[in-house]
Amino acid sequence: MSSALEAARARRSWSKVTDAAPSHEELLELVAAAGRVADHSSLAPWRLIELRGTDREKLGRAIAKAEGDKHPSSKPLRAPLLIAVVASYRKSGKVPRWEQEAVASGVAHMLSLLLDEAGWGVLWRTGHYTRSKPVAKAHGLKKNEELLGWLYVGGKPPEKREGRRRPVDAARFLTPMPGEKR
């Protein structure tokens, strides 16, 4: 088992995946771990929707409706498993909406790391249609919920060369408080 640091450094997006996918049982274990992100007041302002098989075709029709297209979108068919990431806002006098969305995003990112470490290829897809009525209806979203996108999950294909992301220049993003000298 690798460390969290090694998993984060190795993470990359997989735009092409094979037809293999984790089972529902495997997914439950990873979701339980991903749900441990920091969550002010333990509101759990998130939920995930598992889309497999014909669920993806239903989503393709909803995207087409949102886009005004006559033919279903083939985008949801690019992976055997899609996990819809939903911010499910709770009433709270202490935890603002933006913070609740951050929790849902944190769960999605943690889950993508865990899936990657478990050997699965993952890509987080978004798009303007995530906030459309047809797509919300297809997912059964309630009035207090917003779709943040989908994790596209499948097997990692064999590659001749490993994709590399440029290293992050941490000093560019980690700065002292203004006026402080270091």
Score class of each variant (00 low, 15 high):
residue 129 Y to N: 03
residue 126 T to D: 00
residue 131 R to W: 13
residue 97 R to Q: 10
residue 137 K to M: 05
residue 126 T to N: 02
residue 94 K to I: 02
residue 152 Y to I: 02
residue 137 K to D: 14
residue 145 E to Q: 12
residue 147 L to V: 08
residue 95 V to E: 00
residue 153 V to P: 01
residue 148 L to C: 10
residue 108 A to C: 08
residue 105 S to M: 11
residue 100 Q to E: 01
residue 118 A to H: 05
residue 152 Y to F: 15
residue 99 E to F: 09
residue 115 L to D: 00
residue 153 V to R: 03
residue 120 W to A: 00
residue 92 S to W: 12
residue 143 K to D: 11
residue 88 S to T: 13
residue 125 R to T: 11
residue 91 K to Q: 11
residue 92 S to G: 05
residue 151 L to C: 04
residue 132 S to D: 12
residue 109 H to P: 00
residue 151 L to F: 08
residue 129 Y to D: 02
residue 123 L to Y: 13
residue 94 K to W: 06
residue 99 E to A: 06
residue 150 W to K: 04
residue 119 G to P: 04
residue 93 G to P: 10
residue 100 Q to T: 04
residue 136 A to V: 08
residue 89 Y to F: 15
residue 127 G to D: 02
residue 111 L to Q: 03
residue 136 A to T: 05
residue 124 W to F: 06
residue 121 G to R: 06
residue 133 K to C: 01
residue 97 R to P: 00
residue 133 K to R: 14
residue 114 L to R: 02
residue 110 M to P: 00
residue 112 S to T: 09
residue 148 L to H: 07
residue 132 S to E: 06
residue 89 Y to E: 08
residue 126 T to A: 04
residue 154 G to W: 11
residue 116 D to F: 15
residue 88 S to A: 15
residue 144 N to M: 10
residue 87 A to F: 13
residue 101 E to T: 15
residue 98 W to H: 13
residue 116 D to Q: 12
residue 109 H to W: 14
residue 91 K to W: 11
residue 133 K to V: 13
residue 105 S to L: 13
residue 102 A to H: 11
residue 90 R to V: 11
residue 108 A to P: 06
residue 101 E to N: 10
residue 156 K to A: 02
residue 122 V to N: 01
residue 91 K to N: 09
residue 114 L to M: 03
residue 140 G to S: 04
residue 123 L to A: 06
residue 121 G to Q: 03
residue 131 R to D: 07
residue 112 S to N: 10
residue 86 V to Y: 09
residue 98 W to V: 11
residue 147 L to T: 07
residue 145 E to I: 13
residue 127 G to C: 02
residue 98 W to S: 06
residue 107 V to Q: 01
residue 90 R to M: 12
residue 141 L to C: 07
residue 86 V to I: 15
residue 150 W to P: 03
residue 88 S to E: 14
residue 135 V to E: 01
residue 148 L to M: 12
residue 93 G to N: 14
residue 139 H to Y: 14
residue 110 M to A: 14
residue 146 E to S: 15
residue 147 L to K: 08
residue 131 R to M: 10
residue 142 K to Q: 12
residue 143 K to P: 05
residue 126 T to I: 09
residue 117 E to R: 14
residue 140 G to D: 03
residue 101 E to M: 14
residue 110 M to E: 09
residue 94 K to H: 08
residue 109 H to G: 09
residue 139 H to S: 02
residue 122 V to M: 02
residue 87 A to K: 09
residue 125 R to M: 05
residue 145 E to N: 06
residue 91 K to I: 07
residue 142 K to A: 13
residue 114 L to S: 01
residue 117 E to M: 04
residue 127 G to W: 10
residue 101 E to D: 11
residue 90 R to H: 15
residue 116 D to E: 09
residue 119 G to M: 06
residue 148 L to I: 13
residue 114 L to D: 00
residue 115 L to P: 00
residue 94 K to P: 02
residue 105 S to A: 15
residue 156 K to P: 01
residue 150 W to R: 04
residue 102 A to E: 01
residue 137 K to H: 10
residue 137 K to F: 08
residue 106 G to A: 13
residue 110 M to F: 05
residue 89 Y to A: 11
